[in-house]
Design a protein around this nucleic acid. Structure first.
Lengths: 207, 207
DNA sequence: CACAATTTTGGAGTGACTGCAAGTTGGATA
DNA sequence: TATCCAACTTGCAGTCACTCCAAAATTGTG
């Protein structure tokens, strides 16, 4: 049997809680919704909520593992002979075209980002996710390059690559919040992405 | 008059609370000390503690503004004609020699780092400080380079420079926690610092 | 059907933090 | 010096995230 009744119910309950919580947060803001309210809306006890999610933030972060793994995917799926930085440049440019949500944040203006932005707890969480991303990418890079354990090249490279994507997304979000329409943001972001990745490839030597 | 009785008392109270709190945290760990205990030990009410410090973490972070400003100092005080990355390399190598505490953390093994390390709240705080550092350095760099507002070169450069120092300090701490004596860490860290700063200067182009 | 394992629940804490109203104290003014 | 205002401190009551525990309720098994 693939999944007994017990397991199915657990999964359903978990999803119901997470969905309802996310809905409430989107509607009214993370800090304006109590766990008790989520529990009531999901028709379970507060204790049950904490049985499934160990913190309130986890209620909103249910798919962050995907985000954490993203850079490793880019690395893994790059073309044969394609350089690492090249791959990230290509992927990021593609993400701009498709307004992909996975890079740090989506277009910036939507409800999701707003919820995160005005909750200190959630932004802290986001920084945490970013660190995990760095460390994950560093491990993957180390494997890819056959580096010694203890070699800090992969670690530094991971940090610098993700610093670029992080800052680009930060910019995109700032522009969106400033009211710029996406038609203006897109091209500008593309130009800045090229600039940033150039910097990444060539180094800061001549500063 | 430079400072009335009122102001002096305020300053004294603030310092007393902070000192006593830090002492308690060092002795027993951040999470094992309640604000109520700090208040009692400092002979004030809990409310007074929160009058001076808006969160419990602030009780332990009383001089983080220094840490935030550090990179800007390095930038400001670099020699005439000295490149930006050069200056940071020099400063960091010097910091290794003197086991300077300002770079992220001190040698790693002391009570301070341990307190931070086993408190999630404090490590989150530290990440926050690092972000502020980045943003501060980015501003300073933008001024120094006469960059347009909106130019992302200073922002990226700041992130990459501080990524290097952050990772080096992270390494130092990891080695210390692994029981390595400083005599072994120092030289290794110096070598790794050169490697990392070389990477920073020359870019990741050939990855 | 009964028994065991797992989940759910209620209830009673703890601890950070807030808001308010009532003291208390320092300093300026009459 | 007496007085009064503003700032500071305190106690109290409350909110909310989160924990621990023991008593139901539910589900899978023999």
């Amino acid at each position: 049997m693939a999944e007994g009744l017990r397991e199915r119910k657990k999964r359903e309950t978990r999803e119901r809680i997470s969905d309802i919580a996310t809905g409430l947060f989107l509607a009214r803001g993370f800090d304006n919704v109590t766990v008790a309210e989520v529990a009531r809306a999901a028709d379970v006890s507060v204790n049950t909520v904490f049985n499934y999610f160990s913190t309130k933030e986890d209620l909103f972060a249910d798919r962050y593992d995907l985000v954490v793994d993203l850079p490793q995917q880019v690395l893994r799926e790059r073309g044969p002979g394609e350089g690492v930085v090249r791959a990230f440049r290509r992927d990021y440019l593609g993400a701009i075209e498709t307004r992909d949500w996975r890079y740090g944040l989506n277009a910036g203006n939507d409800a999701f980002s707003r919820v995160i932005n005005d909750s200190p707890a959630l932004t802290a969480r986001l920084r945490d996710v970013h660190l995990q991303r760095e460390q994950g990418l560093a491990r993957a890079l180390a494997g890819e390059l056959g580096a010694d354990p203890g070699d800090l090249v992969p670690r530094v490279a991971a940090a610098q690559i993700l610093a670029v994507t992080r800052i680009l997304s930060e910019r995109a979000q700032a522009m969106t919040l400033a009211g710029e329409p996406w038609e203006r943001i897109g091209p500008l972001l593309t130009a800045q992405a090229h600039q940033a990745f150039d910097l990444l490839e060539n180094g800061l030597g001549d500063l």
